[in-house]
């Protein structure tokens, strides 16, 4: 594509096409940034352009990106709270039913159903289920585990988990457009822009 003079610094867009694809379509645009600060500014711009299906990729959680990307608070605490409540009630009911209802038997003069003796197990079950809610809730909300991501077709993107910062725009975003998006990202200081086709 032809570039005008003021965009001479803008990197050329590189297209990566899957070898096995019959009818290649762009599914993802990746823009590489050198620093977190550049990324923060760029992210705020991309947000203001009205993109929906886009993301930032950083080797560590960059503070301030939540605001720059307008990410809303996650549901996760409620999942954890639910897990904890389930664990506590489940643990208490389990002990009560097993030791006081289904097979009550007398041990060391303790009541069949005694609150002090039920607290340790009730507590552990609370923690266990809340923690399971936290771990698997995180995976669920993030749509993990995944083996394949289109990102993995880019060689540059290897550094997203080490020392480079990326913005990705999903091909399904209604504002997705290879040319204009690449120009935008280039203006925002991207050192490289790649389009992944499948």
């Amino acid at each position: 594509m032809e570039m005008n003079t003021e965009m001479l610094d803008t990197p050329a867009v590189e297209t990566i096409t899957a070898e096995d694809s019959v009818d290649p379509k762009p599914v993802l645009m990746l823009a590489e940034f050198e620093t977190a600060d550049l990324l923060l500014v760029a992210a705020a711009q991309v947000r203001d352009q009205g993109f929906r299906l886009w993301d930032c990729h950083t080797p560590y959680p960059v503070h301030g990106l939540d605001g720059a990307m307008a990410i809303r608070p996650t549901l996760l605490p409620w999942i954890v709270l639910g897990g904890g409540a389930l664990g506590f009630c489940g643990g208490m009911l389990m002990q009560g039913w097993m030791n006081a209802v289904d097979y009550p038997f007398l041990v060391s003069g303790k009541p069949f159903w005694s609150i002090p003796a039920s607290i340790p197990v009730g507590f552990e079950m609370t923690i266990l289920f809340a923690a399971i809610g936290s771990f698997f809730g995180m995976l669920l909300l993030n749509g993990l585990p995944r083996l394949y991501r289109p990102h993995f077709r880019s060689d540059r993107f290897r550094r997203a988990t080490s020392d480079r910062f990326f913005i990705s725009i999903d091909g399904r975003d209604r504002r997705f457009d290879v040319e204009s998006n690449a120009r935008l990202l280039g203006e925002l200081g991207a050192t490289a822009v790649e389009v992944i086709e499948e």
């Binding site: 590189e14 990566i16 096409t17 585990p145 995944r146 083996l147 394949y148 993995f152 077709r153 880019s154 060689d155 540059r156 290897r158 790649e194 499948e198």
Partner: peptide, 16 residues
């Protein structure tokens, strides 16, 4: 620069 991803898209279906 491209690289060959070690996993293919269909493998995610397999994962499920």
């Amino acid at each position: 620069m491209s690289r060959d991803p070690i996993f293919r898209p269909w493998m995610d279906q397999l994962l499920k």
